[in-house]
C-alpha cells in the first residue's frame, strides 16, 4: 500500500516456515497428531500420578493410627 516492502509476496514464504506447511499439509497433520497424543498422555499422567500420591498418603494415615478411635484423637491436622 505504501510500497515500502513487498509484503504480499513475502507472506507466502513465511507461511510455509511458520506452520511447517500450510493448512491440510502433511506437516500440519503430523503436528496435530503429536499434539493430540501429548494431550492424551498428559491426561493419563494426571490420573496415575495422583492415584499414587493419594494411595500412599491414605496408607500412611491408616498405619499411623491417628484415625483409630473417634473423639479421642487429635484428628485432622488442620
Amino acid at each position: 500500500m505504501f510500497d515500502a516492502f513487498p509484503y504480499d509476496e513475502w507472506s507466502e514464504d513465511i507461511a510455509e516456515f511458520w506452520t511447517f506447511g500450510g493448512g491440510g499439509s502433511t506437516g500440519t497433520w503430523i503436528l496435530t497428531v503429536l499434539g493430540f497424543a501429548a494431550m492424551l498422555v498428559a491426561f493419563w499422567g494426571f490420573v496415575i500420578l495422583e492415584n499414587r500420591k493419594l494411595t500412599h498418603q491414605a496408607s500412611r494415615l491408616k498405619a499411623s493410627g491417628a484415625l483409630d478411635r473417634p473423639g479421642t484423637t487429635s484428628g485432622p491436622t488442620a
Binding site: 500420591k53 493419594l54 494415615l61 485432622p76
Partner: peptide, 11 residues
C-alpha cells in the same frame, strides 16, 4: 483419610 487430613498434604 486424605479428605480428613486435607488434600494439600497428600497432593
Amino acid at each position: 483419610e486424605v479428605e480428613l487430613e486435607g488434600l494439600d498434604m497428600a497432593e
